[in-house]
Every structure is written in structure tokens, then in C-alpha cells.
């Protein structure tokens, strides 16, 4: 599983790479586009996702100590869905600005949608797997592996959040 996660890191690689290039060569455009992000919603979402990792870890512990992990797993699913819901709202409300952006700002929005979109796809897959586990899993192994995947998605978001939401907020 860790080998798979290494693959995933590199899968996100080109997106991070494009972002760093933009940040280095078009700092003003990236900062001004970043100001259009919903920082409150973004922060809330970060908190939600971090909490979901917490519930996921508790789910694994429950299964290791022969208690039912179901409650924790469903809670994780719920938090994941909440994240996606908020994200979806952000996407639609930012769309018009993104479509009319030009130059470096357009690149910022492109990267924003591509990177967080890829992240959202991963999360949706994660939600599907965790729901399935909550319905069926008896054993510890699949929960552990899925947990690693879930935490990985969380870590990716931990970096995406300051990258897209927190540029020169004081300005």
C-alpha cells in the first residue's frame, strides 16, 4: 500500500509542479486570484477533513479491539460527504470568475480546479470504499489499508489548502 501511495504522490506531482512554476513566475496574478477563494469555507473544509482522518483512525482502533467500527466509519463517510458538498458549492460559485479570468489568474484557476478536482475524485473513491467497509467488513486488514489511503488524501489537502486559499491574505 505504501508503494501505491508513492505512486499517488507522483501522480499529483505535475500539478504541484505547475503550481510552483506559477507561484515563482506569476506571483501577483496567483495572489490576486487566491483572494477570490472562500477562505472561510476552505478552512472549515480543512477542519472537516482532518476530523474525518481522526474518525477513520478511531474506526481502525475499534476493529483492532474487537468492537464494531461501523459508527466511526459512517461518521467518516458523513464528513467526507460534507467536504464534497462544500467543495461543490465553492466550485459553482467560483465558476463565473474562473471563466472570465485571464493570464496568470486563468492559470491559477485551471490549477485550482484540476488539483482540487483530482483530490475530490480521490475522496469520492475513498467515500465509496469506506461505505462498503461500513456495510461489510469484519476484518481489520481492509480497514487498515483504506485508512492509509484516506489519510493520504487528507495529507494532500493539508498542502492544497495553504497553496490555494492562503496567498497573501493580508493584502
Amino acid at each position: 500500500m505504501w508503494a501505491f501511495l508513492a505512486t499517488e504522490v507522483l501522480f499529483f506531482g505535475p500539478l504541484f509542479f505547475g503550481y510552483v512554476h506559477g507561484r515563482a513566475f506569476q506571483p501577483e496574478a496567483f495572489a490576486s486570484a487566491s483572494h477570490h477563494m472562500h477562505v472561510v469555507l476552505g478552512t472549515l473544509n480543512t477542519a472537516i477533513l482532518l476530523t474525518s482522518s481522526f474518525t477513520m483512525a478511531l474506526g481502525l482502533r475499534a476493529s483492532q479491539t474487537d468492537r464494531s467500527p461501523r459508527l466511526w466509519l459512517w461518521l467518516t463517510v458523513l464528513l467526507g460527504l460534507a467536504f464534497l458538498g462544500i467543495k461543490g458549492y465553492e466550485y459553482t460559485s467560483e465558476w463565473s470568475e474562473a471563466a472570465s479570468a485571464a493570464g496568470g489568474e486563468a492559470r491559477f484557476y485551471f490549477l485550482y480546479y484540476a488539483t482540487t478536482g483530482l483530490h475530490a475524485v480521490h475522496l469520492a473513491i475513498g467515500i465509496a470504499i469506506v461505505s462498503w467497509l461500513a456495510l461489510r467488513a469484519r476484518r481489520e486488514m481492509p480497514i487498515e489499508v483504506t485508512g492509509l489511503y484516506w489519510h493520504f488524501i487528507d495529507i494532500v489537502w493539508v498542502f492544497l489548502y495553504p497553496m490555494f486559499y492562503l496567498l497573501e491574505r493580508y493584502g
Partner: peptide, 25 residues
Amino acid sequence: SYIPMGIFNTVANMGISCAKALLIA
């Protein structure tokens, strides 16, 4: 990120992200 620190805003953001990632891992 609401305190102007120039380049150190980015440093702080990325440093804290790394710390969080490390905690999760």
C-alpha cells in the same frame, strides 16, 4: 497568513503543512 511577513508567509504555511502531514503520517 493574515500577518504580512513576505516570503515567510509561504515558509510558515509550508512548514505548518509539513508538520501536519508528519503528524498524520
